[in-house]
């Protein structure tokens, strides 16, 4: 057994369980302290998804649910790299995404927001990072939508991301936001993140990633929990 120990969550940037302005946390946050666990085999391993067959358009939400035309809205392309805290790229990481359509409506049956569904847009996709940790999705910029947390509550535009990383200590589910969104300052989910972490959830517009006459480019990198080995020691 190697001596590699993975770092803990960095509580300077991760949100707490209880964050009362986000009302759903009140009855769902653990109330007792977490028990510290010595990492063993199951924490130092995790599911490997490299053998799975991705569908041809799994990473292209503008094409993976076409019925009778193109999805409506502003096409975007989101690029980025998945790394650990030492800056080392993490290849073969499964990334799954989901989002609202351009009108701010999710296809999920529970979403009853009175905005139209788009028959040509599902809003789900996935990809696996390449040998240098890079990923890319084509999609439609998601719309803002109201929710019931408080009077006149609106979620800022966002894309949900789920990542696996090297093992289960690296598991991350998060949301990517867009630069300059005026709703961020009012959103208790975004504001649940300590101030030091907030900028890390906002993507950057990047003209060099923008595809002429096709899609605006955004960059969003991920940093997963690292480990105690230096790059030199890592085999």
């Amino acid at each position: 057994m190697s001596q590699i120990i993975y770092n803990s969550f960095d509580r300077e940037v991760h949100p707490p369980y209880l964050s009362p302005d986000y009302q759903s946390t009140v009855l769902r946050a653990p109330s007792k302290p977490l028990m510290v666990l010595k990492q063993s085999l199951s924490e130092l391993t995790g599911p490997v998804f490299g053998d799975f067959n991705l569908g041809e358009f799994d990473n292209d939400l503008t094409k993976n649910a076409l019925k009778n035309g193109q999805p409506l809205g502003e096409r975007i392309v989101v690029h980025g790299k998945v790394m650990n805290e030492n800056g080392q790229p993490i290849p073969n990481t499964l990334i799954e995404i989901w989002q609202a359509n351009a009108a701010g409506r999710y296809i999920h049956k529970v979403d009853q927001h009175d905005a139209p569904l788009d028959p040509n847009f599902l809003g789900a996709g996935r990809c696996i990072t390449d040998s240098e940790g890079n990923y890319k999705f084509y999609t439609i910029k998601p719309g803002a939508y109201p929710w019931g947390n408080h009077h006149n509550a609106w979620r800022p535009n966002h894309i949900h991301f789920s990542l696996f990383g090297a093992n289960i200590t690296n598991r991350l589910v998060t949301q990517m936001y867009f630069p300059g969104d005026p709703l961020l300052q009012y959103d208790p989910i975004f504001l649940g993140v300590p101030p030091k972490g907030r900028d890390l959830l906002i993507s950057a517009f990047d003209l060099s990633l923008t595809e002429p006459s096709f899609a605006l480019g955004y960059r969003f990198n991920f940093v997963l929990r690292g480990h105690n080995a230096t790059p030199f020691e890592r085999q």
């Binding site: 940037v13 979403d111 949900h160 998060t174 300590p194």
Partner: peptide
Amino acid sequence: MKQTPSQTVGPYFAYS
């Protein structure tokens, strides 16, 4: 480098 902060999975994860 700082870890990317977590956010809730929310109510609408199922179709992905």
